[in-house]
Design a protein around this nucleic acid. Structure first.
Length: 287
DNA sequence: CCTAGAACCTGCGAGC
DNA sequence: TGCTCGCAGGTTCTAG
């Protein structure tokens, strides 16, 4: 469940079902799922054994489980298709089960990392004084973080020689935004995805950030966006924000604001959805 | 240094 | 029915 609201839904589930439990055993079933753990799957499993899980944290699309008293954390990224599920011991293994974590208690549930496309994974890393895993130091704060610096974002945005959607997806500028919420926020702000970042005024940036936050909070309040069973919370349940999407996936459907048929354009090996009337392309950029 | 584009994977649905 | 193609919510590497 790739973008910020979906990852936050997972974080909350882990806080409820996994925090404060002691790891009995970890089992790595696919090496690609721990490829960011450079010491390998056996090292990952042995270092996790016996550790007590702390309160889960998140920045953007990354989430991590601190190991109590260890200055280290289990870092998780779901990639395109990763799931963290809390399942009963006796539930049959999922087809794409990659990592299993058993606990030393009698709750009869285990944590499973399931990932069809294996772009995601788990890894163990040292944490800095703020509890942040060292390998994500380059990831910017996300727009729901109280310490996100709007003014600094505006300055960095203006300094870019790029276009607005690329900038929104740049996790070192602002984290947590992916293809869905970028299109949704741009639609709300009536901005074309190829508007040059250099054209943004301070009020324009503020307005866009407001829409990014609004759409993420709205998605969060209904459990995130799920088109299918790939995007679920730790209990395997889907969110309901799909029905509230105004842009993403609406090619040919009337714009909810002006009725003009929405368009889809190939963009960066994926798609951008927009209203050709509400979101006018910048000059010299073909519609 | 920066930016744009391709690569990394598996599975699904559409079209032939 | 079965094949091929295009597409999928992300990150990272390479080429320019």
């Amino acid at each position: 469940m790739p973008e910020l609201p979906e990852v936050e839904v997972v974080r909350r589930g882990l806080a409820r079902w996994v925090a404060r439990r002691t790891v009995a055993e970890a089992e790595v079933l696919h090496p690609r799922a721990v490829r960011r753990h450079l010491a390998g799957g056996a090292d990952f499993a042995s270092r996790l054994k016996g550790q007590i899980i702390g309160e889960p944290s998140r920045r953007g699309k990354y989430l991590w489980l601190p190991l109590e008293g260890a200055h280290a954390s289990v870092l998780a990224h779901l990639g395109m298709s990763g799931q963290l599920l809390v399942q009963p011991h006796d539930a049959p293994d999922e087809k794409h089960l990659r990592i299993r974590v058993r606990f030393a208690d009698d709750l009869a549930t285990e944590l499973r990392f399931v990932d069809q496309r294996t772009f995601g994974g788990l890894s163990l890393h040292d944490t800095d004084d703020n509890g942040l895993p060292d390998v994500i130091a380059h990831i910017a704060r996300d727009p729901l973080d109280p310490l996100f610096d709007d003014a600094a974002f505006h300055t960095a945005l203006r300094a870019k020689r790029s276009t607005i959607k690329r900038a929104l997806l740049d996790q070192s500028l602002i984290s947590g935004v992916g293809n869905i919420y970028a299109d949704e926020a741009l639609w709300r702000a009536k901005l074309h995805y190829e508007r040059p970042t250099g054209t943004f005024t301070r009020p324009r940036t503020a307005e866009l950030l407001g829409h990014v936050r609004d759409v993420m909070n709205a998605a969060l309040s209904v459990g995130g966006t799920s088109f299918d069973s790939l995007y679920v919370n730790v209990n395997g349940e889907s969110g309901y924000f799909e029905r509230s999407l105004d842009a993403y996936g609406r090619e040919g459907l009337p714009c909810r604001r002006c009725g003009t048929p929405m368009r889809r354009r190939p963009w960066m090996n994926r798609s951008s959805y927009y209203c050709p009337r509400c979101q006018r392309p910048p000059r010299a950029v073909p519609a």
